[in-house]
Computed example of a mutant assay.
Amino acid sequence: MQYFDAAQTARRLDYESLIPALRSGMTADAVVPPRQHYSLDDGKEATLLVMPAWNREFLGVKLVDVFPRNAERGMPALSSAYVLAEGATGTHLALIDGGELTRRRTVGTAALGASLLSREDSRVHLIVGTGHIGSAVHDAYAAVRGGIETTLVADPYNPEGARALARALAERGVNAVAAGDLQAAAGQADIITTCTLAREPVLRDAWIAPGTHLDLIGSFRPDMHEVESSLLGRSTVFIDHDAARTEAGELVSGFAEGVLTGEDIAATLPELCPRTNPRPRADDEITVFKTVGTGLADLIAAVTVYVSTDPPLER
């Protein structure tokens, strides 16, 4: 059995390869059982997620530990591992660093959604959240929206993290700015990507301008919310998988409050991916792509790691 550490996993999941693999893989036949959630403490903050998926060639399962309070210890909130096996025999093929796989498939899936739904002339991108996931967002979106001229970075829970990420991007030549005023930044953005573990909305409905596209990455439980549910009521809503209907706090609340119905979900990602032409959108239309993460995206990423070769190291 092969082992791929975080660095090897990252090298084999460059976004120019991963995002097309996700798009083609989303339409292939696969079995994706519901993700299993297990609360590990009385406060229901620590969570174990078990995410299996398989097709004719491969079988995989990801184990994810989510400990939000790790931020207080200076540690990542997520820790995970992925086991890939042969579909015909169950023989284990690879153990893959789940943290980097999750990180890259998460932002890769969101960027894929943005490539299919956001305006092609988008120029300003706002990233909200600067943790393990948020720090990877810029590179994924650069692979699909090369016309972005300004990257705004905000983190209401960690303003210094926003400044640090903006500095790091600027050192690479990106026009990146830490946004201290989140409301003003949201009003300027053409694309907004949220990647927090917020339980209360970090973005208000009134802040979002017509024509904006939002990718909501963070919430994966009914008690988690990154935007006010009322925003969904005036948006065209897309989801990565039907599981989002019961797992994403924004959707669960929207259904309960009556601002959204099941019929208001315009499409899932597998329904969007086969399109050969860009989806038409009105100038004032707000689009929302809600992703909770799926075992299928994990399987696609894991297979990409397994079958790829390491690119040559830069000198």
Rank of each mutant, 00 (worst) to 15 (best):
S79R: 06
G99K: 03
A81I: 14
R104Q: 03
R103C: 03
G99P: 11
E100Y: 00
A77F: 11
T106N: 05
S80I: 07
P76T: 01
G98C: 07
G90Y: 09
T89H: 06
L101Y: 05
H92R: 13
G87Q: 09
L101C: 03
R103I: 00
A81P: 09
L78E: 07
E100R: 00
E86N: 15
H92M: 14
D97L: 10
S79I: 03
A85I: 08
A110D: 12
L84G: 06
L101K: 01
S80N: 09
T109C: 10
A81Y: 15
H92T: 15
A110C: 13
A81S: 14
G99T: 07
E86F: 11
D97I: 07
I96D: 08
G99I: 14
H92Y: 13
P76H: 06
A77N: 10
G98N: 13
L93W: 07
I96V: 12
A77S: 15
H92F: 12
P76F: 07
L95G: 07
S79H: 14
I96A: 06
Y82S: 11
E86W: 12
G87I: 06
S80H: 09
R105H: 02
S79M: 10
A77L: 14
H92Q: 14
G98L: 02
R105F: 00
P76K: 06
T89Y: 13
E100I: 04
S80G: 13
A77H: 06
L78C: 05
G87E: 07
L101Q: 04
Y82V: 08
L95C: 14
E100P: 01
D97P: 10
T91A: 14
D97V: 04
S80W: 12
G99Q: 07
A85F: 13
A81Q: 13
A88R: 13
G90D: 13
L95R: 14
E100M: 04
L84K: 01
G90W: 08
S79A: 15
L93G: 01
L101P: 03
A94I: 02
P76E: 04
M75D: 15
H92V: 15
L93Y: 07
T109Y: 08
D97K: 02
G98D: 10
L84H: 06
A110Q: 02
L93D: 01
M75Q: 11
L95I: 15
T106Q: 05
M75L: 15
I96K: 06
A110M: 12
A110L: 07
L78A: 08
A111P: 03
R103L: 02
E100T: 09
R104M: 05
R104D: 08
A110N: 09
R105C: 01
T102I: 09
V107C: 12
G99S: 11
A88S: 13
G108S: 10
T102G: 04
Y82L: 04
A94R: 05
L101R: 00
R105P: 00
R103N: 03
G90Q: 11
T89I: 04
T91R: 15
T106F: 09
R104A: 05
T102K: 05
M75H: 12
T89C: 07
A88E: 14
A111K: 00
V107P: 02
H92N: 11
L93R: 02
S79E: 14
E100H: 02
